[in-house]
Each structure stands twice: as structure tokens, then as C-alpha cells.
Design a protein around this nucleic acid. Sequence first.
DNA 1: CTAATAGTTGACTGATCAGTACAAAAAAGG
DNA 2: CCTTTTTTGTACTGATCAGTCAACTATTAG
Lengths: 194, 194
Amino acid sequence: MGRPREFSDQAVLDAAMEVFWEKGYEAATTQDLCARTGLGRGSLYNAFGSKHRLYEEAIRRYAATRADAQLAMLADPEAGPVRERLRAMMLGVIDADLADPGRRGCLALNAATEQSGRTEDVAALVRRQFVNLEQAICHLVTIGQGTGELPAGRPPLQVARTFQSAYYGLRVLAKVTDDRNTLLDVVDGALAAL
Amino acid sequence: MGRPREFSDQAVLDAAMEVFWEKGYEAATTQDLCARTGLGRGSLYNAFGSKHRLYEEAIRRYAATRADAQLAMLADPEAGPVRERLRAMMLGVIDADLADPGRRGCLALNAATEQSGRTEDVAALVRRQFVNLEQAICHLVTIGQGTGELPAGRPPLQVARTFQSAYYGLRVLAKVTDDRNTLLDVVDGALAAL
DNA sequence: CTAATAGTTGACTGATCAGTACAAAAAAGG
DNA sequence: CCTTTTTTGTACTGATCAGTCAACTATTAG
């Protein structure tokens, strides 16, 4: 009982996620968060406790929306042969990253690399997302090797981890370059290495 | 003429570089920079103009010291066959990153991914370092293909860009994981893809 | 020597920071 | 209606932020 909340937690987290995504943890101010979420300071702090706790929740929200959608695409057989699914993942982020003038990239990757705000809790949240993607790619590699679409013999987990690294490296490169050909070379090279 | 400076620009930039490396741009305060460099606020601002200009100079200093030393190792034939040089680069950063409790990683990569402070000037400085490494790797791949150490036929620049991406991805993973085996898989996979 | 130039120092600025205090408001139970 | 509980809005906190300023110091030119 008591007075009911006037906001949806999900909607507020979506808004907070956008702020942290655009500015990073340290540069995002509580003022930004209040303005974007539409909540007053009292409500924000009553609901989430601190800027850092809200950051953690925003990262969780990112995992539950953006990251999980990516995993779903990878797992969807209708998205084509495994090689095409992996290619689509990379081509998709090239389009998304180059189209964004703010070059926000991937929130999980940003949270991993930003020195400020990377507590062990945040690192664990990011690590979980990284492992999820690794496992999804590993599953695809295993399938591909089983159907003969991919050459067998190499350890699927090693192949997956290498592909995943190239994927994150691609997103790092996309932070500072506009040259699509550079990024497409990474796609072609990573696919050739499967 | 006039009163001579009491400090060495290089030593001050080395100190400032450490601060930005440990904390990132936004979280580094002018107080931190004064304390670490030993300069008063007046001297710092007289010499470098602003926190952001000092950041740019620190990134340049990073390129001139750390990054260039890495390029020199890659270019040194005494460091072994090209495959061993590329392996040494990756194994070296695994050791360095895992040994650092603050997980500073690579300053250029941090500057690329941090949303705050990434002006076009900073992006250009980082991009230059990225291209330098790309070219160094590409040169090695070309040599390796020429001597028969590496299989020929694939475009050296594409191979280099893919390896470089895996390298940056490796450093991203090292920000949040302690598991050396995960990182070693990336090394083995990236070398197998050459 | 004096004048001119440049570097140093530390106090100071107004703005902004994350977080708190508290009273008004909105609901449910009785 | 009245008490209890929770949320809300806002004013407020002390701290800290990047950057400035003027007085002072060290040096060279003449």
C-alpha cells in the first residue's frame, strides 16, 4: 500500500540507459537523468538509491533488450545459415554505428572500457553479456561444423572467442573511423577465419 | 627570455598520461593532474591551456612512447618470425593487462571508447595510432606471405585488419575477465587465421 | 642597475556535482 | 474520516569542478 508510483520502471530505465549510453557513466549527471526520465530527484533516488545503482540497472536493461535481441537473431534458423547470421550481426552494427553521429557504440563495451564506474558489480554484469555472446557464437560454430557449412577440426570455443574479439574490435574501430571499407575488411576476414 | 620553466614537458606529460590512463578523461580532475605532475594550477594552465588540450598531449605522448615501442618490436626481425612477433604482442598485453589491478588497458582504446572527451581532434589522434598498428601488422603479413611462413592468397590488409580487431577485442575482454584461457584462445584463434 | 618578459603560486570564481531533507500529496486499511 | 505508508517535488547541502587572476619570482637584454 501507500502512494503508487507514477512511472514505469522499464520506461525510466530505458531513458536512463540512453543517458549512460550517450555520455558514459562519469559524464552523465543526475540532472541529465532526471530530465530524460522525467522523474524528480526525490523519486529517482527513492527508486534507485544512487547514480551507480541506476547505472547497474541500466546495464541490465540493455542486456534484456538490445543484447538479448541480438542473441535471438543469432539463434533464429530463419535468419539463414550460420555464416550469414554472423555476417548479419557484424554488418548490422556497422550500419548502426556509422549512422550514429554520437558514436555510442555498444553500452556493454563502453561500460567495460570506461575506467570510472567499473566496479566489480558492473564488470560482472558486462562479463555476463560477453559470455552470453561467446556461447551463442560457439553454438553457431558447433552447428556449422556439424552440417559441414564450416570446416571442422578447430575447437568451436576458440573459434567463437576469436570471432567475438574481432566483433568487439570492429566496434572499437567504428568509434573513430568513418571508413566502411576498413570495417568490411574485418567482417570478411573474420568470416574467412571460421 | 623570461623566467625559465622549472619542469620538463615530457615528465609532466608522462605524469598526466598516467592520470588519464588510470581514470579516463572525465573522471580525471585538474587537482589529480596538478598533484601527479607536481605543477600548480597556474603553471599547468599556462603551459597547456586546458584539461582537454592536456588530454590530447597525453595521448600524443602515449603514442610516442608506449605505442611506438610496440611498433618497434613488431618491426624488429630479431624478435623472431612474423608469427612469433604477432603472438608476442598479444601475449605481452595479456600479461600486462592481467597484472594491472586497475585494468587500465590501452590508453588509445580507452580514449576511442569513452564518450566524454572524444572530440574530433582526439578521434583523429586515436585513429592515427590505429592506422599505424594496422600498417605494421599488414607489413608483417606481407612479409610472412612472401617468405611462405604464412599462406598466401588472402589480401594482407584484410588479414591485418582482422587481426588488429581481434587484438583490440582481446583488450576489451581483458577489462572484465581474469580468465587467461579465454584470452589465450583469442591469441591461438587469431594466429590460426593468418 | 632597470625594464621587459615569462613562470609560479595560491587564493578565488561561479557553476555544478551527487545526494539529502522535508513537507505536501496520493493511495489503502480501518 | 483518520492513520499509515509510500511517492513526489523542491529547496538545500557541502564538496568539488574547471578555470582565472594578481601578486610575486626568476631570468635576460640593455
